[in-house]
Simulated scan of single mutants.
Amino acid sequence: MKIAFYGSSLLSAYWNGAATYYRGMLRALAARGYDITFYEPDVYDRQKNRDIDPPDWCRVVVYDGTVDGLRSVAAAASLADIVVKASGVGFEDDLLLEELLKAANPRALKVFWDVDAPATLAELKADADHPLRHALAAIDLVLTYGGGSPVVDAYRAICAAECVPIYNALDPETHHPAQADPRFAADLGFLGNRLPDREARVEEFFLKPASDLRHQRFLLGGSGWQDKPMSPNVEYIGHVPTVAHNAFNATPKAVLNISRASMAANGFSPATRVFEAAGAGACLITDAWEGIELFLSPDDEVLVARDGGDVADILAGLTPERAQSIGRAALDRVLREHTYAHRAEEADRVFRKAAESRAMEAAE
């Protein structure tokens, strides 16, 4: 089946946290025989900051960040068996959804793939006339990369035909154990862009423990933190390209996952970083959120912190031997249960079930 997928960017992870998810999911779907074209707008300097070349498992079409460019690529949806509009494309999202629903073949499966469901649902709650609310009647399937039953129930409450979480996962060919790199030597590393929905939690879970543990070294990667006050034992290294993520995760004694506030409040929303770190065999410390045990076992495969004080206590008592043991256990778990091959199998089953349902409705 042909998939026309409209998202933020496959080629660049620059200010684009969904890149790893897109790459892992679409590569695994291609391995199952799907013929995929990914359409991404040339916005936010992402094309100037590409970190992969166009892959051989997916065609990539980069279009001008103009209304004419958008309408041109939207017309191509007419050739697809499955038309996917992701959330957060970053240029005229509402117009893009409108144009795709008009262009799609009536027999095609129309999918809204939400890569930030808590934020999307907050927008829908605040705006009874939101364009997506009206579009849901024409959409066959909502997929999300997290959220669990709270997100599923919320989408069904606003009349989505179906909503299924397809969680983040690991692509073991991309994220895997690596040699330690002296550039990333630290007791604790954190990698994440500066976002309003995350900043206060970074202060609590990363910068506060760093200030309390002045004898330990902390490493901060990601865009936007250059003017953030931090203690002298924190080294800020800026944007870290995906090609360096394995070494970043494998080198420090432990790495930290900090969920955005909306994701933590909702639960069941493991970030791509969780699986990247586990795939590198890293000892992961994560902020606490409901559902973590569905992905990694607390204390054995991941260490869970309720606040910055917990992070400091964990680091103070964490030996290199225990850190390595936790990292090995996490790697074993994600390879066994949480690869994108597992997720693609689930997505394939969901697509086929939805297509069969549509065909039966058409035949009645």
Rank of each mutant, 00 (worst) to 15 (best):
V83M: 01
D51W: 03
A75R: 15
E92T: 04
Y44D: 11
A31G: 10
S72C: 14
R59I: 09
N49W: 02
A77K: 09
I52P: 03
W57L: 02
D81E: 08
V73I: 10
N49D: 00
G7W: 09
F91K: 00
A86Y: 11
L79P: 00
D93I: 07
A76Y: 05
V84H: 02
Y22G: 05
Y34E: 04
I82A: 05
P41E: 10
E40C: 06
K85G: 01
V60H: 04
F5Y: 10
D81L: 01
A76C: 08
Y21D: 00
A76G: 06
Y63C: 09
S8Q: 13
A31V: 11
Y22R: 00
P41I: 12
Y39K: 04
G69T: 15
A31T: 15
A76V: 13
S12D: 01
N49A: 08
G88I: 14
T37M: 12
I82C: 02
Y21S: 00
W57R: 01
V73M: 02
L95Y: 13
S12M: 06
S78M: 04
G7C: 13
K85N: 14
N16R: 10
Y14M: 01
L70M: 12
Y44L: 15
S72Q: 15
S9H: 11
G88E: 10
R46M: 11
D93G: 05
S72F: 13
R71S: 15
V61Q: 08
I82E: 00
L26Q: 14
I82Y: 03
N49L: 13
K85D: 00
G88H: 07
A74V: 08
S8I: 08
A31H: 06
D51T: 05
I82W: 01
P41H: 08
R23Y: 13
R27W: 10
G90F: 11
R71G: 09
E40K: 03
T66P: 08
R50W: 05
T37Y: 05
D35C: 08
G65V: 13
L11C: 05
V73L: 07
A77Y: 06
L11W: 09
A28E: 05
L10C: 10
A30R: 06
V89N: 07
T37P: 00
V73S: 12
Y39R: 00
V83S: 01
Y21A: 00
D93Y: 10
I36V: 13
K85S: 04
F91E: 09
A30Y: 05
P54Q: 03
C58P: 01
Y21H: 06
V60K: 01
R23S: 11
L26E: 07
C58G: 01
D64R: 14
R50H: 08
A74Y: 02
F91V: 11
R27F: 12
I36A: 03
G24P: 07
S87V: 07
S78K: 08
R50D: 01
A13F: 12
L96W: 12
Y63Q: 11
D64G: 08
W15I: 14
P54T: 12
Y22W: 11
L96C: 15
V60E: 03
L79E: 15
Y63L: 02
G24K: 12
Y6W: 09
K85A: 06
T66I: 11
S12T: 03
R46L: 14
I52E: 01
